[in-house]
């Protein structure tokens, strides 16, 4: 792990100077605000857009705070993850393809340190983004609908952040293994298509985000919860391990 602090500094500088620490959390914040707001003002919006037939009235379901947080997490799961995927899928593969990695790989650097430094910095961005997204959603939900219980809310947040760690590990592993195009396709399949498996089972990593919400609703079957948590952590560690091995193996893919 020689050189970790130096590589961390490099990754941090890149993320900071390309505004990633700012713009990605802002996007998550907007995503978090949108569902509580639009749902609350749905009737007004429908009336404003107009052309509703006389006497037309739809009965909107009564929402509890957990419903809105769940909707916000749904936004993070679609647009949020797409933003993370698009922003970081080239982290390793693009550096190889454009030749910037050459001057680093030619030194006897530790690939573990290099991979981990990227993982840590992106995870930090993921953390700030999750905080921003949750804070925005919870703020509007509290103002417009009602309060959360702080304990389960925090548990839900931590659960979601751990899921994000897996997403980031998968993105980096794909980037270490393939060129950017194939990596993007691969990561997309694993992260998004895998979510269909949650229809069948509750104990897979893809169930973790919704399992977090079930904690708030106090409807989680805890054995499934811990299984999904355990598998997520395992998959994350495995992804990181494969990523480091492949990054080293693909040294000769650098443009010289």
């Amino acid at each position: 792990m020689r050189g970790l602090p130096i590589l961390l500094q490099k990754e941090f500088r890149e993320a900071w100077r390309s505004w990633k620490f700012l713009w990605i959390p802002l996007v998550f914040a907007i995503l978090g605000m949108s569902d509580p707001l639009t749902n609350y003002y749905m009737m007004d919006i429908l009336h404003a857009v107009g052309n509703l037939p006389e006497g037309f009235d739809i009965q909107l379901p009564e929402f509890v705070p957990a419903d809105l947080l769940q909707a916000s997490i749904g936004q993070f799961q679609m647009i949020g993850l797409l933003v993370l995927l698009a922003s970081f899928i080239g982290s390793i593969s693009k550096e190889r393809a454009n030749g910037t990695a050459t001057l680093l790989y030619v030194r006897s650097i530790s690939f573990s340190a290099y991979f981990i430094s990227k993982f840590l910095v992106i995870s930090a961005i993921g953390f700030v983004s999750a905080v921003a997204g949750f804070a925005a959603s919870v703020y509007y939900t509290t103002v417009l609908y009602g309060n959360f219980e702080i304990g389960t809310l925090l548990a839900c947040f931590v659960t979601y952040f751990i899921w994000l760690l897996l997403v980031i590990a998968v993105i980096l592993m794909m980037s270490a293994t393939f060129n950017t195009m194939i990596a993007a396709t691969g990561a997309f399949i694993v992260i998004f298509i895998g979510q269909f498996l949650t229809i069948l089972w509750d104990f897979l990593p893809w169930s973790l985000p919704s399992n977090g919400v079930l904690l708030i609703r106090d409807m989680m079957y805890m054995q499934d919860y811990w299984w999904s948590m355990f598998m997520t952590v395992m998959f994350t560690i495995i992804s990181i391990a494969i990523g480091i091995v492949m990054m080293k193996k693909n040294t000769s893919m650098v443009k010289i």
Partner: peptide, 13 residues
């Protein structure tokens, strides 16, 4: 008062 934060964040971005 309610939608101001949303507008501010969008503007900052």
């Amino acid at each position: 008062a309610v939608i101001a934060p949303l507008i501010v964040v969008q503007l900052v971005l």
